[in-house]
Amino acid sequence: MSRLPTLSLLLLLLQCPLSSLSNSQGDALYAFSRRLSDPNNVLEGWDPTLVDPCTWFHVTCDSNHNVFRLDLGNHNFTGTLGPELGQLPYLQYLELYGNKFSGKIPQELGNLINLIGMDLSNNQLEGSIPNSFGKLKSLKFLWLNNNELTGSIPREITLLKNLVVFFENNKFSGPEGKGLVP
């Protein structure tokens, strides 16, 4: 009879959701994927029960299993960009170009302090460029062209050294050009 409590405890542990064992980066990526319509089933292999998202297609990790690249360009996704993308602290490259993303660019993308390149071009994004992008001191390339963005270019972005911004074919107020090199 002494085996019964041990067996019961084991069965209880096996029924616990795997989210308690999960990786916060995987949780963030999976939450982002739930916002999307994926007509080509590109994200079909994104399994939330796997602790490590480094095995998922279009996700690249470093040797410490930190997500440093997300490449989801040209896959015909629709949906919105969510704040959960800002929970990828090691991300260096965010490639979301050539889809049909709509809505506003989340302020939380300004939390990606290791970001070197972000390509949000050729979508249907609207609203203004978040001022929080001024925190992206490592950012070298920012592609925002061919969206529906409005407002003015935040001064914080113009102060970033070594940044090249592509933002033509939007609806900005004020001067607009093919690129900006501060």
Rank of each mutant, 00 (worst) to 15 (best):
N64G: 11
N76T: 07
W56I: 09
D38R: 00
N74M: 04
S102N: 12
S33E: 00
E108H: 14
P89F: 11
I153W: 07
P154R: 10
C61A: 09
L18A: 06
Y90N: 15
M1T: 06
P175E: 08
G117R: 15
E84P: 00
N131W: 03
G79S: 04
S37N: 08
N162G: 12
D38T: 00
V165I: 15
N170S: 07
T55K: 14
S2A: 14
T49Q: 11
P154I: 07
S132C: 02
Q87Y: 13
N131Q: 14
F167K: 01
T80Y: 14
P17W: 05
G79N: 02
L21Q: 13
E95F: 11
S128P: 04
G174W: 02
L125P: 04
L109W: 13
S132Y: 03
L160Y: 02
Q92P: 05
G177P: 01
P130H: 03
N99A: 01
S63T: 11
G73I: 00
F101W: 06
F172L: 10
P5D: 10
L180K: 10
D38A: 00
E176S: 15
A31D: 08
G26V: 01
E95Q: 15
H58C: 06
L88K: 08
T158G: 02
Y93V: 12
N64K: 08
G177A: 14
R35H: 08
F141S: 12
A31R: 14
D119N: 15
L112D: 09
P5V: 10
Y90W: 14
L96D: 01
V67G: 07
G117D: 12
P106H: 09
S132I: 00
L4C: 03
L96G: 02
A31G: 02
F133P: 05
G103Q: 06
V42Y: 00
E44Y: 12
N66E: 09
L13F: 15
N111K: 14
L136W: 05
S173M: 05
L50S: 15
P39E: 02
D27K: 13
M1L: 10
N147D: 07
L21I: 02
E148L: 13
V67E: 06
F172K: 05
W143Q: 13
G82Y: 11
R35L: 15
Y30Q: 04
Y97D: 13
K161G: 03
R155M: 12
L149N: 05
I113H: 10
L4M: 07
L94P: 12
T60L: 12
